[in-house]
C-alpha cells in the first residue's frame, strides 16, 4: 500500500519535474527538486497519522528518493542526449552529473524535511509547515536568479492572474452577479498607479503608497458603477458591466487633450461675442494630457528594490539597521 502510494504520487510529480528538467536543463533540476520535493514530502504524509518527526522523515525519504530518481534521470538524458542531439553546445560530463546529483539531493532533502515537520505536535506542525512555504516564497526569486532558470517573470504573471481570478470570484462566485466588465477595475487601478507613480504627471510617489490609493480608487469606481445598476438583473447586469468594461478603456485612451471651460461664462461669451469672458478651468494654454493615449503611461513606479528600500527607509529605519542598508547599498 505504502509503496503503491509512493509510486503513484511520485509518478505525477516526477513526470512534471522530469519534463521541466528536459525543457530547461542546467540548474532547473535543482530548483524543481527543491519545490516539488517539498510538495512530495507533504503529499506523502498528509493523510496519515505521523507519530514522530522520525517516522515522517522515513516516509519523506521514500517520496524524495522516487522524485530524485526522476530528476536525476531527466538531468542525465538532457545533458548527455538531448543537448548534443538538438545541436546546442555540449556541457562537460562532470557538470551534467553535478546538475543531476544536486537535483537529486535537494529533492530528497526537502522531501525529508517537509515530511519530518508533519510529525511534529499539532500547533507547531502547522506553524512549521507555513514557515517552510513562506521560506520558499521568499527564497524563490533568489534561487531562480542563481539557477538562471528565469521563471520569475512567468510566476509573477501567474500570481497577477490568480489575484484577478480571486477578485472576480467575489461578484461572480459569491454574489452570483455576472460581471463582464471586471477588467475595467484592473485598468482603473493600473492607471491610478501609472498617474501617481510615473514622471508623466510629475507625481512620482512610492509604489508602496500608491498601491493602496489605487485599490481605493478602483473600489470607489466599483461603488459608483454598482449603485445605479443594482436594480438590474441577470443578463441585463451582465451587459451593463460589459458596456462599462468597454467605456473605460476608451476613456483612458482618449483623455489626452482635456480643456474644461466653465459653461455659463462661455455661453455668455458666445452671446456677447467677447471670447475673453469665457473662464477656463483646466488645460487653458496647452491641453491637459492625463492618460497619454494609445501609448500609455510607462515607466510607472517600480515595486522592486529601489522603491522598497526607499519606503523602508521612510517607514522603518530612521537610524541605520544593517539589513536595510544592505538593501540600500545594493539598489540605490
Amino acid at each position: 500500500m505504502n509503496l503503491v502510494k509512493t509510486l503513484r504520487s511520485s509518478s505525477i510529480l516526477g513526470s512534471i519535474a522530469a519534463l521541466t528538467v528536459l525543457l530547461f536543463g542546467g540548474w532547473s533540476g535543482a530548483v524543481i527538486g527543491w519545490l516539488l520535493g517539498t510538495a512530495a514530502g507533504y503529499l506523502a504524509t498528509h493523510d496519515r497519522f505521523v507519530p514522530t518527526p522520525k517516522t515522517g522523515a522515513q516516509t519523506g525519504i521514500q517520496a524524495g528518493l522516487a522524485l530524485g530518481v526522476w530528476i536525476m534521470a531527466a538531468s542525465l538524458i538532457e545533458g548527455l542526449l538531448l543537448r548534443p542531439l538538438s545541436g546546442r553546445a555540449a556541457i562537460p560530463l562532470g557538470q551534467t552529473w553535478l546538475y543531476a546529483l544536486v537535483g537529486f539531493g535537494l529533492a530528497v532533502a526537502s522531501a525529508t524535511l517537509m515530511a519530518a515537520i508533519q510529525g511534529l505536535a499539532n500547533p507547531r506542525q502547522r506553524q512549521a509547515t507555513l514557515l517552510t512555504l513562506a521560506f520558499i516564497l521568499i527564497i524563490f526569486p533568489f534561487a531562480d536568479r542563481l539557477a538562471q532558470t528565469g521563471w520569475i517573470a512567468t510566476v509573477i504573471q501567474i500570481q497577477i492572474f490568480a489575484m484577478l481570478a480571486l477578485g472576480l470570484n467575489i461578484p461572480v462566485g459569491y454574489a452570483g452577479l455576472l460581471d463582464l466588465g471586471y477588467a475595467a477595475f484592473f485598468a482603473i487601478g493600473a492607471y491610478t498607479t501609472g498617474m501617481l507613480s510615473s514622471p508623466h504627471l510629475g507625481i512620482e510617489w512610492n509604489f508602496w503608497i500608491v498601491i493602496w490609493i489605487a485599490a481605493g480608487v478602483a473600489a470607489i469606481a466599483g461603488v459608483i458603477l454598482g449603485t445605479p445598476t443594482l436594480p438590474l438583473r441577470g443578463d441585463y447586469l451582465a451587459i451593463v458591466t460589459l458596456g462599462f468594461g468597454e467605456i473605460i478603456p476608451i476613456v483612458f485612451r482618449n483623455l489626452t487633450d482635456i480643456r474644461i471651460m466653465e459653461p455659463i461664462s462661455s455661453l455668455l461669451a458666445t452671446l456677447f461675442n467677447r471670447p475673453e469672458m469665457a473662464i477656463c478651468l483646466l488645460g487653458c494654454e496647452e491641453t491637459f494630457n492625463l492618460t497619454n493615449g494609445e501609448t500609455g503611461i510607462n515607466r510607472s513606479g517600480d515595486p522592486g528594490c529601489r522603491s522598497l528600500a526607499a519606503s523602508a527607509l521612510i517607514i522603518t529605519c530612521r537610524g541605520t539597521t544593517w539589513c536595510w542598508c544592505w538593501w540600500c547599498s545594493r539598489c540605490l
Binding site: 510529480l13 512534471i16 519545490l35 502547522r126 521563471w151 512567468t154
Partner: peptide, 28 residues
C-alpha cells in the same frame, strides 16, 4: 486544516508545470 494545505501544495506543483509550459512557448 490539512485539506486546504494539500490543495495549495498541489496548486504549487501545478504552477511549476505552468512555468514549464509558459517557458516553452517563449522559447518557441
Amino acid at each position: 486544516m490539512k485539506a486546504p494545505l494539500k490543495r495549495s501544495v498541489l496548486t504549487l506543483s501545478l504552477l511549476s508545470l505552468c512555468v514549464g509550459c509558459a517557458g516553452t512557448t517563449t522559447t518557441t
